[in-house]
Amino acid sequence: MIIITILEFLLIAIFAMALGLLFMGIARKVVARTQKRIGPPFYQPYLDVLKLFGKDAITHGFIFDFGAIMAFGGMIATLFFVPIGSIYLYSMSGTLLLVIYLMAIAYLGMAMATVGSGNPLASVGISRALTQMLGYEMPFIVVLLTLIYSSGSSSIVGIMQAQQGGFMNWNLINVPLGTLVAFIALLGLMGKKPFDAPIAPSEIASGPVVEHGGKYLGLLMLQHAVSIVVKTALFVNLFFGGASNILFFLLKMLLVWLLATLIGSVFPRFKVEEGVLFYWKWPLIGALIQAVIIIF
């Protein structure tokens, strides 16, 4: 019995990694096409990861290693609470809030790795990331509380089930303004273009990962892949009604991811303080209006 459970966990983790890398490849292709390039093949991220794991790696001490593993582990732990299609491991109440907390662990892991490496650019990057988190979490949490109120459940599975019975029951239709706000927050969550100040490659040399080479970078690429899956899956579950069929679910995830990628490929980036200000202005107002509409 316990072995089957462990296998389940392992399978889900591997599946999410593979899927995330595929999504990254598709995104690179899409961005290339919008810039009138041909772009790398869609399986490029798999090759990148394989190559990175074949390279040497240099460590900067225990905290550095621990931080990288904590970032990876935090993301994997989050994954287990997010249903993918009809596959879910936990359905108790409160998973939605738990997921929000767990997602921060990955960032804290990155912060630890940053401290371990001692690189100033990395500290700038991670402080930007945490500042930006302050920005997008505020409107996002307001929308989530609205959802919890409207569907009367604080578990992701519960919210998903509350939307069952066709297109008209989706939160996309019932909570349109909230969906928009959450999507803008999602861009920040995934570090997509208007809000990618934390990793700005041309100014702070890819920010938190500046000292990660070889195998560490491979690990963090996998972490990024899993985080893409977690975040898009969360969004699909909350606003697109989830799906009972895994194929439909993947299709919806791809839709969300492509939309975010397309938006990311045409926008320049906000400065970090501008990003936070932006989040605290329009999305927050939108989220509050939505909350008032839903409650009264």
Binding site: K36, R37, G39, P40, P201, V209, E211, G213, L217
Partner: peptide
């Protein structure tokens, strides 16, 4: 690197730091 000759189709891309580069 950009649209005209696009070296990313050969899987070559810019790296930001020496640690990540080949």
């Amino acid at each position: 690197m950009t649209s005209r000759y696009d070296m990313s189709r050969f899987g070559i891309g810019p790296a930001a730091t020496p640690r990540q580069a080949d």
